[in-house]
Measured scan of single mutants.
Amino acid sequence: LQAFIKTLTGKTFTVEMEPSDTIENLKAKIQDKEGIPPDQQRLIFAGKQLEDGRTLSDYNIQKESTLHLVL
């Protein structure tokens, strides 16, 4: 599935991932794409901060969901 990552500066980019991917995997993909170390990334979806060990499906993240990236 493709999801949108929106930063506080208003920049939006897309990442490809599977519902079974962990938040940790997602942070690694963001690092590959944007060069931001995972330990500096905080991802917010539906008002909740996402925990590394959980999966996208745990948070009911669907295709074309928008996640907010806070540094």
Rank of each mutant, 00 (worst) to 15 (best):
T7E: 03
L71W: 10
K11H: 13
A3V: 15
D52L: 05
K33A: 11
F45M: 08
K33C: 06
K33P: 01
K27E: 00
I5Y: 02
Q31H: 14
E24R: 14
I36T: 08
E18C: 11
D58S: 14
G47K: 03
S57M: 12
M17V: 15
E51Y: 05
L56K: 00
L43I: 12
P38I: 15
Q31F: 15
Q41I: 12
N60F: 07
G10F: 04
S20A: 09
L69I: 12
K29F: 06
V15K: 00
L43M: 02
K29A: 07
Q41Y: 13
I61L: 08
L56R: 00
D39K: 10
Q49F: 13
P19W: 14
A28S: 10
Q2I: 15
E16P: 09
P19C: 06
F13S: 01
I61R: 03
T55L: 11
F13K: 00
T12C: 10
E18T: 11
L50E: 01
A3K: 02
L8I: 13
T9A: 12
Q40T: 08
T9P: 04
K11N: 07
P19L: 12
G35V: 02
R42V: 15
L56C: 03
E16I: 12
G47C: 05
V70N: 05
V70L: 14
L43R: 00
H68T: 13
R54S: 07
L43H: 00
L69N: 00
K27V: 01
F13M: 04
L8K: 11
K6W: 07
T9Y: 14
L43S: 00
P37T: 05
T22V: 04
M17P: 01
D39W: 14
D58G: 03
F4Y: 12
G47P: 00
V70D: 06
G10A: 03
G47M: 03
Q40P: 01
L50C: 02
R54W: 10
I61W: 08
T9D: 13
P38K: 15
K11A: 08
D21W: 11
K63W: 11
L67W: 04
Q40L: 11
S57R: 11
Q2C: 10
K11I: 08
V15I: 14
L50S: 01
L50N: 01
L71M: 10
I61G: 04
T7Y: 14
V70F: 14
L56E: 01
L1H: 06
L69T: 01
V70I: 13
I36K: 02
V15D: 00
A46M: 14
D32R: 12
D39Y: 12
I30G: 00
K29Q: 07
L1I: 15
G35A: 04
G53S: 12
L8F: 13
K63N: 15
T55F: 08
T55Y: 08
S20M: 10
I23H: 01
M17A: 10
P38G: 07
E51P: 02
D58I: 02
E18P: 03
T66K: 07
F13V: 04
H68D: 07
K29P: 01
A3P: 07
A46N: 15
L69W: 01
F4M: 10
I36V: 08
G10W: 04
E51L: 10
D21N: 06
D52K: 04
Q41A: 04
L56W: 06
T9V: 07
S20C: 07
E18D: 13
K11P: 04
N60S: 07
S20N: 13
K63M: 12
E16H: 10
L26A: 02
D32I: 13
L8S: 15
L69Y: 01
E16F: 13
F4V: 14
Y59M: 04
G47Y: 04
Q2A: 08
R54K: 14
D39L: 09
E64T: 10
L8H: 14
K6V: 14
D21F: 05
L71F: 09
N25R: 14
T22F: 06
Q31T: 09
N25M: 15
L67H: 01
D52V: 05
K27I: 02
V70G: 05
G35W: 02
K29Y: 08
K6D: 04
T12I: 13
Q31Y: 15
D32L: 13
P37E: 06
Q49D: 12
L26T: 01
K29R: 10
L50D: 01
K33F: 10
T14K: 09
E51R: 06
F4H: 12
K29L: 09
F45Y: 13
L69A: 01
K6Q: 11
T14D: 04
F13I: 09
E24G: 14
L26S: 00
I23Y: 01
A46S: 08
L1N: 06
V70P: 00
T14L: 11
D21S: 08
A46K: 14
T55A: 07
F45R: 02
D21V: 03
I30K: 00
I5H: 02
N60I: 09
T55N: 05
Q62P: 12
Q40N: 09
F45L: 08
E16S: 10
T7N: 05
N60T: 06
V15H: 01
Q31C: 09
S57E: 10
K6I: 15
N25P: 01
I61D: 04
K29T: 05
F4P: 02
S57Q: 12
K33D: 03
S57V: 07
E64R: 08
S65P: 07
L71V: 12
N25D: 12
K27D: 00
L1Q: 05
K33R: 12
K48N: 10
E24Q: 12
Q62E: 11
F45P: 00
I5C: 05
N60W: 06
Q49L: 15
T9Q: 12
I61A: 04
D52Y: 05
L71C: 07
Q49H: 12
D39R: 10
H68N: 08
A28R: 15
K33E: 07
T9E: 11
D58H: 10
G53L: 08
G10P: 02
R54V: 06
E24M: 13
E51T: 05
G35N: 06
G53C: 06
Q40M: 11
V15A: 01
L67S: 01
K6G: 03
Y59S: 02
Q62H: 11
K63I: 08
L56N: 01
L71K: 05
S20K: 08
Q41F: 15
S20H: 13
K63E: 12
V70M: 12
L1V: 12
S20L: 09
P19D: 09
I44A: 04
E64F: 14
L50M: 10
S57Y: 09
D21T: 05
T22K: 08
T55M: 10
G35I: 02
P38Q: 13
D58K: 02
R54P: 03
T14G: 05
T12M: 11
T14S: 10
R54I: 05
T55P: 07
H68C: 12
I61K: 04
D52W: 03
K11G: 06
F4A: 06
L50V: 05
E16T: 12
L67Q: 01
Q62C: 06
Q40V: 10
Q2R: 14
E24V: 07
K63Y: 10
F13L: 06
A3E: 03
I44P: 00
L8V: 13
R42D: 05
I44Q: 06
G47D: 05
L1P: 03
I30H: 00
T22C: 03
E34W: 15
Q2E: 08
L71R: 07
I61T: 06
G53E: 09
A28Y: 13
L67D: 01
E16A: 09
T66H: 15
P37D: 07
I23T: 04
L67P: 03
L8E: 15
L43Q: 00
T12N: 06
S57P: 03
